[in-house]
Design a protein around this nucleic acid. Sequence first.
DNA 1: AGAAAGAGTCGAAGCGCTTCGACGATTGGC
DNA 2: GCCAATCGTCGAAGCGCTTCGACTCTTTCT
Lengths: 337, 337
Amino acid sequence: MVTLAEVARQAGVSPSTVSYVLSRKRSISDETRRKVEAAIESLGYHPHAGARALASNRSNILALMIPLRSDMYVPVIMEIAMAVTTEAREFGQDVLLLTKDEGTAGVRRIAGSGLADAMIVMDIELEDDRIPVLRETETPAVLIGLPADPAGLACVDLDFEATGSACVEHLASLGHRDIALIGEGEGVYKRNTGFAARTLTGFQRAAAANGIRAVHRSCEGTYESTAGVLSRILEERPGTTGFVVQNEAAIAPLLSLLRLSGRAVPEDTSVVAICPDQVALQSSPRLTSVSIPAEEMGRQAVRQVMAQLETRDAEHVSQTTLIPPTLTVRESSARKS
Amino acid sequence: MVTLAEVARQAGVSPSTVSYVLSRKRSISDETRRKVEAAIESLGYHPHAGARALASNRSNILALMIPLRSDMYVPVIMEIAMAVTTEAREFGQDVLLLTKDEGTAGVRRIAGSGLADAMIVMDIELEDDRIPVLRETETPAVLIGLPADPAGLACVDLDFEATGSACVEHLASLGHRDIALIGEGEGVYKRNTGFAARTLTGFQRAAAANGIRAVHRSCEGTYESTAGVLSRILEERPGTTGFVVQNEAAIAPLLSLLRLSGRAVPEDTSVVAICPDQVALQSSPRLTSVSIPAEEMGRQAVRQVMAQLETRDAEHVSQTTLIPPTLTVRESSARKS
DNA sequence: AGAAAGAGTCGAAGCGCTTCGACGATTGGC
DNA sequence: GCCAATCGTCGAAGCGCTTCGACTCTTTCT
């Protein structure tokens, strides 16, 4: 293993000088810098992460806590994780993967061991028990999701309430008067994951504001459950011509079932999905959708957490960032005939 | 921050004794152990990860390199990553997430900085340029996937060749004489990712052995491309009654298209998928499938890498583990009528 | 009974880095 | 032309842990 001391010897300077070349915390003459950099290059030197963490009290690691098995759509989680990892590297940070099932003990472990400088926490519940621990241990943190009480903590999330409203308003503007929200599975609402409830709130508010009849049904996302939900909706309200789908897994079954039942999309029935663009583009017809900005959420989370690390001590700049929804009109929605 | 020295003081012993209590590398009397453990508990002590890494030359971190945007089915990657993380915790290891786009530089960085003790590398290409670097830096590593030359490296993968054969044999045993393999997108074959080619080999070999007519078409997985592939197959070989699907994204479109074209599954046409069980169970009808044992691959990878770490110096125990395929018969395949 | 072996504990060295204070050499202001 | 400030460099302390050797007691064997 190549050490800083060897680099120093090879470059003919003292170890501290090499350190300052690397950290840029003191000025270094061009000539010295060149010699040191040449030595680093020729020896293939990489600073020892542990030694660095010990001496500087900074590990340059961000912990990312993600759900182990989630009701959330897996690709979204993955995309967020990738965005976090990529953006973190831009700041010279690495990402440590933790699973939600480590729970509060995991948070304590990371906070106590100095393994990571900060945490990014996903799949936030309304009364998430990791939040008090985060506060208590004063771990710099960003939540992806919105708890009931975000005081003192930075949060990043899609504005799901506005998302629900946007879908309704789009359908309303096309003349639909009877619409349905095909939501997430029961478990998601029970687990208090906020986002599903917020979507529903926005959906209902906008429906009321626009004088539209709206129903909501939760759906597990399998073919069978989607079939059941759809037939119940059509039984109760045969005039339903607009669907908002929040559970991505239900999209393919729904389209298939509508096709099978002779309801053409978008001629007879309009469908708006809340899903990643990729999913919307892969369907046939391509779906009008509000995209879940997974990548932006990941990037934002990293930026906020880095801002916190840089302004440590400065007044707590903990803001909640709600990303406004963007509805993209594609082929699955049209004016009611 | 609570240090080992504080624990020692509180327990009335020397720091080294506390260390030995933690590491179990020397015997400790029950009484001392109790005192130390009580002190640890009451102070909420967690050893400083950096200090530990520096002193012991072991970080207790495993680096996991995953594809950034992959042709592989995302949930499979996710499941592997989760299995790796969970299993790693059983060994007291944490997982550092790296993206494949860091490439060889990433491998060098990790190997050089002592940030991780070992690497688990996914999305292995036949001539993967990370492999020589892994060899050269003598980083303990496990590959998930199979390169052209695995010499000296541990590999874990599904036996895709046997998988291809198993699917054919199942269809053959049901009396199907004309079958088709709907494969991965062009890119996957071009990128030399081995597994797709190995599946094809097994598919063709078994077809020949069973005297069955077999065609192979690559498929991007969108609705349109699946429709194109299907209609071409049926045009060329109208008698095709069996399908093997490797691209998970093509499953839903394929089922939808078969339904639309009036071919009942499994009465008229049998479908066998190569996909995670979850996907097979979510389809309607539930799919006969060879499951991709993502969880087992992740677990195996961790076990192998830990074995390497424990037997360091001992003769290189680098074996290739090909997990034999398991075909589960469900509702999508039946005897040819 | 005495030597050898083991159990249980301690002190101190050292892992590779950062950072503080110090110091000589320039530089600029007056 | 002198003092202060600044630049560029160095030496040494220390971050919190592991681990080696040494030491004291017991226990066991002959």
